[in-house]
Computed example of a mutant assay.
Amino acid sequence: MDEITSSPAPDGSRPAGPAPTRDRSSRRAALWATLVAVPVTAAVAGFTFASLAPTEPVATPSPSASTGRTQSVAPVEMPVPHLAERPATVCRALVSQLPPSVRDLNQRPVTAGAEQNAAYGDPALTVACGVPPLTVCPSPAPGASTEQPADGCIPATGDVWRVNGVCWYTAQESDGAVLTAVDREVPVRVGLPKAYEQPLQWIAQISDAIVATVPSAKSAPSGCSS
């Protein structure tokens, strides 16, 4: 078989053939393939690492510590008047429905009468069920002083306030405020020390318990009708 060989050029060099062109094209294609493959490989590796990495748990806020008032847990001394059967039954129902706390004041034990008395916080906010009822004071005689009403009555000009469906009369005393529910079959009295400002802001939860357990009175001061 004859062997085909290329003849040298007149200057002694070999003639240029198509092979070098193919070599350059191949090298250029290989270079582009490498340039494209490197970032793709890096991206795939990064995605794979992220997929295999453990998922970090979502942080949830931990409950904050209570910021309630520091208070004594000693029993609060309260009077225990004798109650007839009907008021005693109503008062037991009321006490059973009182909240465990009034705003940020936790309930405290009482020395006696737990079936008709309750106390909260330190100094103690007190709740007494079955207290003597308040009535509207009689009109004073002409020329008589109206500055000091008789004990156990509401001045004709005295303000009453409705809080969550209960009508309260507020009296200021030397050591704080006394609020009495005056539109209920069995009167309820709340004593608030001076440390607790704006007395009406403290009785909403107590009013709710009264509405649920203490029937309305047949009559009430005129200011309670609104």
Score class of each variant (00 low, 15 high):
residue 23 D to P: 04
residue 221 P to W: 00
residue 162 R to L: 09
residue 207 S to L: 05
residue 189 R to G: 05
residue 128 A to R: 01
residue 222 S to C: 06
residue 16 A to S: 10
residue 152 G to N: 10
residue 225 S to K: 09
residue 132 P to G: 06
residue 56 E to R: 13
residue 155 P to E: 13
residue 180 T to E: 00
residue 81 P to T: 06
residue 118 A to D: 04
residue 61 P to D: 13
residue 88 A to F: 04
residue 179 L to V: 04
residue 190 V to H: 01
residue 188 V to T: 07
residue 130 G to E: 02
residue 82 H to I: 08
residue 111 T to S: 15
residue 126 T to M: 00
residue 23 D to L: 14
residue 73 V to K: 12
residue 115 E to Y: 06
residue 28 R to V: 15
residue 67 T to V: 12
residue 179 L to K: 07
residue 132 P to I: 05
residue 114 A to Y: 01
residue 162 R to D: 09
residue 4 I to W: 15
residue 28 R to L: 15
residue 153 C to Q: 12
residue 136 V to D: 00
residue 104 D to V: 08
residue 153 C to A: 15
residue 168 W to A: 04
residue 36 V to M: 14
residue 26 S to N: 14
residue 224 C to M: 06
residue 218 K to G: 13
residue 209 A to T: 11
residue 190 V to E: 00
residue 14 R to N: 10
residue 7 S to P: 07
residue 4 I to M: 11
residue 116 Q to M: 02
residue 13 S to V: 04
residue 155 P to F: 07
residue 172 Q to A: 15
residue 212 A to V: 05
residue 2 D to Y: 10
residue 85 E to I: 08
residue 160 V to H: 00
residue 9 A to H: 08
residue 123 P to G: 11
residue 107 Q to L: 02
residue 144 A to Y: 09
residue 4 I to F: 14
residue 47 F to C: 09
residue 42 A to S: 13
residue 151 D to T: 11
residue 44 V to G: 00
residue 3 E to S: 13
residue 71 Q to D: 10
residue 99 P to M: 02
residue 63 P to K: 01
residue 33 A to C: 10
residue 142 P to N: 14
residue 124 A to Q: 02
residue 80 V to I: 05
residue 139 S to Y: 05
residue 16 A to M: 08
residue 165 G to M: 00
residue 75 P to G: 09
residue 49 F to V: 13
residue 120 Y to M: 03
residue 3 E to D: 15
residue 201 Q to R: 14
residue 177 A to R: 02
residue 33 A to E: 01
residue 69 R to F: 03
residue 129 C to I: 01
residue 77 E to S: 15
residue 157 T to H: 12
residue 145 S to M: 10
residue 9 A to D: 14
residue 135 T to A: 14
residue 62 S to N: 13
residue 27 R to S: 13
residue 14 R to K: 10
residue 213 T to P: 05
residue 65 A to P: 11
residue 102 V to D: 00
residue 158 G to F: 04
residue 101 S to G: 09
residue 208 D to E: 15
residue 72 S to H: 05
residue 36 V to C: 14
residue 56 E to P: 11
residue 108 R to V: 03
residue 159 D to V: 09
residue 4 I to T: 14
residue 96 S to I: 02
residue 113 G to R: 09
residue 36 V to G: 13
residue 21 T to P: 00
residue 71 Q to H: 12
residue 11 D to K: 01
residue 148 Q to R: 10
residue 145 S to E: 14
residue 37 A to V: 06
residue 62 S to T: 15
residue 3 E to K: 11
residue 138 P to E: 14
residue 24 R to Y: 08
residue 81 P to G: 05
residue 164 N to K: 11
residue 116 Q to L: 02
residue 57 P to M: 01
residue 7 S to M: 10
residue 18 P to L: 10
residue 84 A to K: 14
residue 131 V to D: 01
residue 22 R to C: 12
residue 105 L to S: 03
residue 16 A to D: 07
residue 33 A to P: 06
residue 160 V to F: 03
residue 23 D to A: 14
residue 153 C to V: 15
residue 182 V to Y: 01
residue 25 S to F: 02
residue 128 A to V: 00
residue 202 W to V: 01
residue 143 G to M: 12
